[in-house]
Amino acid sequence: MLFVQVLQGVMEGIFLFLIASGLTLIFGVSRIVNFAHGSFYMVGAFLTYQIYPWIAEGTALGFFATIVICGLLVAALGLLFEIFLLRRVYHAEELMQLVLTLAAVLIIRDATKFIWGLDDVTVSLPDALAGAAVVGGTYLPTYQLVMVGVGVVVLAAVWGFLKFTHAGIILRAATDDRGMVALLGINQAHVFSSVFAIGCFLAGIAGGFAAAFESINYLLDTRVIVLAFIVVVIGGLGNLYGALYASLAVGILKALGLLFAPRLSMVIIFLLMAVVLLIRSLRRTTE
């Protein structure tokens, strides 16, 4: 029983990581707290719903192809947002940046309502991914195992990118010290734009995977954004690996919480966040 719930929590955690990774990458480099991340996630989900029937519906390959395409489309949308709007407020107060992304939330939500309507929609899983592996009476749904795989691939890809590519090195440098990167003559605008696009790509594919897993509607944005923020904050804003640990912790806490303290599972997660934040600030002051 316990084991099953922990396993469940891990699978849920990896899915959370897919959403949170983009958010934390963007913050790490550009210091933007992007409330519209959930909106990009939602757009990814709706695009998957829209495009999947056109691309070999019912096959696993078509499904993955759809999700990649949707990720790219969302990345393009994010890029437009970054270039035309966000770029103008990088030097403004934090609050202005937040409010700008909040405005994007309002705009994207109404645009989604306009395009896809108000009803819930879902995407059918391709048959190849619909079943479950039964190990000793424990059900391990294929789709969730696939998502674990996707999570690992995303983590490896982002890690490899940051570690080994030239662009990745610049990104890491920008996370540590933006000013220094600018001094070295590297075009900051390009760095910010590309990281924003990468973040939106991750949000888009997370949305695509969600479309086949749950029911989606125009309220999807707010459903995920708060939890994603909690994960990112617990993991440390801008810290990719922190986000991974935090996602797993939150997933497991949620799954176990409903066994032992069903009404408190959310409260426990918020408490975890408060405690982590306070300990971190305490450590900083004592150092």
Partner: peptide, 21 residues
Amino acid sequence: KQLWPRIGETNLTSYITAALA
């Protein structure tokens, strides 16, 4: 058993496993 998912929660898998147990 009585389970109480939060409103807006759409990942119900841990509730499902807890119920099936």
